[in-house]
Design a protein around this nucleic acid. Structure first.
Lengths: 232, 232
DNA sequence: TCATTAAATTGACAAATATCAATCATATCA
DNA sequence: TGATATGATTGATATTTGTCAATTTAATGA
């Protein structure tokens, strides 16, 4: 574990409120590992051994069934994943792979479970973290069921325009095939949809997204905090 | 609050481990209410005031956007809902309505938040409850993205055959239009799909489902605990 | 730099799913 | 019990989305 990792982790909402002694103990059992891009960190169905924290790089959470695969979430620094499986001591529901060269902190699941039994502040933080994760998946499921693929794409663009940059343009954070999979559609369908959205005030050239008419795009997306998350 | 309500609630995993004193305090602020069928208990977007517990009847959680609506979950006795919104003190992501005459216990959200800060056992139970809810939605989202509607219907039947009754037949727990909405399809599509599944060892007459060839149906559904939940 | 691989795009087509309308069945209630 | 409303089913059709194949574009590494 690198000394510079600690403050970053300590500042995560999940760890910021707990007692220093407990944090130190948690970190004592933890270790860091560097992975190249494209490494499968965990495989769905395996027993949950470690809470994972992405310190550098990017990780894709994906799911497989019947020979297919789909992206479920993207974790970027500094973020944790598969907390719920660790807590329930249950098999992972999702697999995870690095999208780029990544640095991951691993905290043994039993340590985690032991500490939140002792440290009420950490328990409260865990509760808040889980509640947040739950709400994020509910929003995602709502989007899948209530919006058409065109609306999902528009909403994705609006969301990133507001979050990543308040300006008229931004770069897509990952490959389009991942975005397509995350949005529950094929790459071909995404490609065509982006082309069609040019009539609604947005142009995509490579990874560069330029919004020429926000109102028009928003009219397609109908952004809603109950589907897209809170405004900031 | 009826005296007979208490033991039932106390036996819920969420409340079974906490100190009696804290349970009593929680129940002191709580109250019960009886509702006829078809009442909207909560509306998405409203601030989260109360944790809801269904003691009798049945409640549908649904979501709305752009003039459409879809079923997200079904809560039956004895079960809780919208815990996450209460914890985060955030707007409800889903609306809820009674499907039949129902008896609901309401626990003020601030009481809830106060008690799990004091009672570590309750905090741990809350963590487990939330982790379970999270995993349930993840499984639901996986099903929506990875399975076709035919496969979702088959999986739904297999799941209920194993859960509700180990025998060859059972009754659908709710109206077909709700099942369709829950599975992310139209009632017409569900109707046709059920007819087509007759070639795969299942017959549906009204609400009665009869499975004549489990192996065949299971071959369509490819049941998987990572999508359908644990076996029991 | 070029060669090689992977991703993105495009077109033609097929399949899945939704929509609309009509009918049938079922439940509810006066 | 019969009248009425609601849900379920069915057929015809439109729309959406996926699949397959071919090509272009971009990224990567020797």
């Amino acid at each position: 574990m690198r000394p510079s990792d600690l403050p970053e982790i300590r500042h995560l909402p999940l760890f910021s409120e707990m007692l220093q002694a407990n944090f130190e103990q948690l970190m004592q059992g933890a270790y860091a590992q560097n992975f190249p891009a494209g490494v499968e960190l965990i495989h769905q169905g395996d027993p949950a051994d470690f809470l994972h924290i992405v310190v550098e790089g990017a990780v894709e959470l994906f799911a497989e069934w019947g020979g297919q695969s789909c992206t479920m979430a993207l974790v970027q620094p500094v973020g944790t994943f598969i907390l719920a499986a660790c807590i329930k001591d249950a098999p992972y529901l999702m697999s995870a792979r690095t999208l780029e060269k990544s640095r991951i902190i691993l905290i043994p699941a039993p340590d985690l479970r032991a500490v939140f039994r002792r440290d009420p502040e950490f328990a409260v933080s865990t509760i808040n973290e889980l509640a947040g994760c739950y709400r994020a998946v509910v929003r995602h499921a709502k989007g899948l069921k209530l919006r058409s693929s065109r609306e999902r794409v528009a909403a994705y663009l609006v969301k990133h325009l507001r979050r990543v940059a308040p300006r008229q343009c931004f770069d897509l954070p990952v490959e389009k095939r991942l975005i397509a999979s995350y949005l529950g559609m094929t790459p071909e369908n995404l490609s065509r949809t982006l082309r069609l959205l040019e009539a609604d005030g947005v142009t995509v050239l490579g990874t560069r997204v330029t919004v020429t008419d926000y109102a028009r795009l928003a009219a397609v997306a109908q952004p809603d905090p109950l589907l897209d998350g809170p405004d900031p």
